[in-house]
């Protein structure tokens, strides 16, 4: 029983951390219409940033500055934001897909740095013995797990509330107006590039935060925690729930991670060892199918955007603005 309870705690902690990433992506895609094809890269930057800043001193490593954990997390967030800034500055004024390609590029590059820059990242072995916040106050690891889940939930709640307020603020309305029609927003005297840049960098920072929390959760980082499939999983979570809606983002997270975990359980217990890698391919195809089928048949996801159906076609910015007014009433 305790085993199952602890497993549920573990599951929920992972879901909560991923939910934070999904909310960051939701800000970028759901509210701003920016395609980030390298989600895992920003998550990894936050994690490695935290690990390097707060990790134990080690003569073989450049990092290991032994800073307090939360300072490390803030550092990770700032580095992730800076990475977001670099790709966004290069691409936001250009064709929309350039951002997608550049973010894809950054995630590949981060993976290479994680694997090859061993004196900074520990290479394939990763960094170990990383601090876990408030660990010294607990004697019982299981109690600490529950505590850590609560800590992550608090962070997730803070991100949720902050984003909800942000997207309902005048800034958030401009964001959606831009997504619907860049020209119209510009004619309202708003600088679309600047506001999209802010949204993208903020989203990247939120992903960096999730990376920092992940380090606190498992106590080490290694390249296999940041495989490209994670980007696809996060995207599946976002659209299953419905982009443009933070409740949907959280719900999608539960569903997709639940599906992934369940299918992984089935494979490791029922599939003969020789076929496990092929079964793993089936699991990835499941994620791919979720993405494609949702786009085709339920583009608004399970919950969908709170306001009007977003056509993104953009004859004018007014539907979004009107919808905002309706939402207030």
């Amino acid at each position: 029983m305790v085993g199952i309870a602890l497993y549920i705690v573990f599951f929920l902690t992972v879901v909560s951390i991923y939910a934070i990433i999904v909310m960051g992506l939701n800000l970028q895609w759901g509210y701003t219409g920016l395609f980030n094809a390298g989600v895992v890269g920003f998550f990894a930057i936050g994690a490695y940033g935290t690990a390097i800043l707060s990790g134990p001193d080690n003569v073989r490593l450049i990092g290991g500055f032994e800073l307090p954990y939360f300072i490390g997390v803030i550092g990770g967030i700032l580095i992730a934001a800076a990475a977001g800034l670099i790709v966004a500055l290069a691409t936001l004024k250009l064709r929309e897909e350039y951002l997608a390609i550049a973010t894809f590029g950054i995630s590949i590059s981060i993976q290479l740095v994680a694997l090859n820059f061993a004196s900074l990242t520990g290479g394939a072995n990763g960094l170990v013995g990383l601090p876990r916040p408030f660990y010294q106050f607990f004697t019982e690891p299981s109690v600490y797990s529950v505590f850590f889940l609560c800590l992550v939930l608090v962070f997730a709640a803070v991100v949720y509330v902050a984003l909800e307020r942000a997207v309902r603020s005048p800034w958030g309305r401009v964001l959606r107006a831009i997504r619907e029609d860049v020209t119209a927003a510009r004619s309202l005297g708003k600088n679309p590039t600047m506001i999209r840049l802010q949204s993208f960098v903020l989203g990247s920072a939120i992903m960096g935060l999730a990376g920092g929390l992940y380090v606190g959760f498992i106590g080490f980082v290694s390249p296999i925690d940041f495989l490209p499939i994670l980007t696809f999983q996060i995207w599946a979570m976002l659209i299953v729930g419905g982009s443009g809606n933070n409740r949907g983002a959280v719900l999608g997270c539960l569903i997709v991670w639940g599906l992934w975990t369940a299918s992984g359980y089935v494979i490791s217990n029922l599939v003969p060892p020789g076929f496990q890698s092929r079964a793993g391919a089936l699991q990835a195809m499941l994620i791919g199918s979720v993405i494609v089928l949702t786009l085709l048949f339920r583009p608004r996801g399970l919950i969908g955007e709170e306001d009007v159906i977003s056509t993104h076609a953009g004859a004018s910015a007014t539907p979004a603005l009107q919808a905002d007014a309706a939402e207030k009433g």
Partner: peptide
């Protein structure tokens, strides 16, 4: 819809085809 949805779909298709081959 907006053409980024096509980019998104191709992203999912890539995962499907790659793993179908695997």
């Amino acid at each position: 819809v907006n053409h980024l949805t096509l980019v998104f779909a191709s992203f999912g298709v890539a995962l499907l085809v790659r793993n179908l081959i695997s």
